[in-house]
Amino acid sequence: MFNAQQPTEKDLPTSAQLLKSTIIAILVTIILLVMVILPAEYGTDPTGVGKLLGLKEMGDIKMSLLEESQNELSQENNTSSIDSDSLDKAMVNNTINNDVVEITIEPGKAIEIKLEIKSGSLVQYEWKTIKGGLNYNLHGDGYKGSQKFISYKKGRMVQSDSGELQAEFDGYHGWFWRNREEFSVTVILQTSGDYIQIKQML
């Protein structure tokens, strides 16, 4: 009936062997849990082995990303009324703007600078770091409630970038920079074009 032969009693492990295997399995699990899984998932490293293996960094990054995304969520909920005010203002004051922003980012930290732009408007931009590279994501978010999101350009450990940004929709478009260097990185951003305002979101 089955695609298999019946094992004889001597083919099977004894109860004592099985018990030994189970105890070993439990010990291995505890070791992995403390030395590998806790550091890699939560950045908690009671033994220091996680740091040695480079897994604590993984847990730390995951925790900071989670915290940032939760902060962002509560921020978004608080700023909804401001958004619609600035939208009204936008219809009156839509002129050519020029800005130069210089910001220093601590190791492991991130900042976000965005331009409020109407759909289709063009902005010239150029940014460079004084020393070191940054991970970046040039992206746009629609006004609160619109659910619109676009990523224009991304990069890792980049020192400079320039180009022309054309907004896909009304909203905030700009740069998310993360410093993964061991030292502080200063970035200088120049923008010029048809946008309403420049704003530090983070």
């Binding site: 995951k62 990303l65 989670l66 939760q70 962002e72 969520l73 992206h139 999101f149 998310f176």
Partner: peptide, 11 residues
């Protein structure tokens, strides 16, 4: 939302 906040994924 948490996936798309600044287009940075978590986890």
């Amino acid at each position: 939302v948490s996936l798309f906040a600044h287009g940075v994924a978590t986890g």
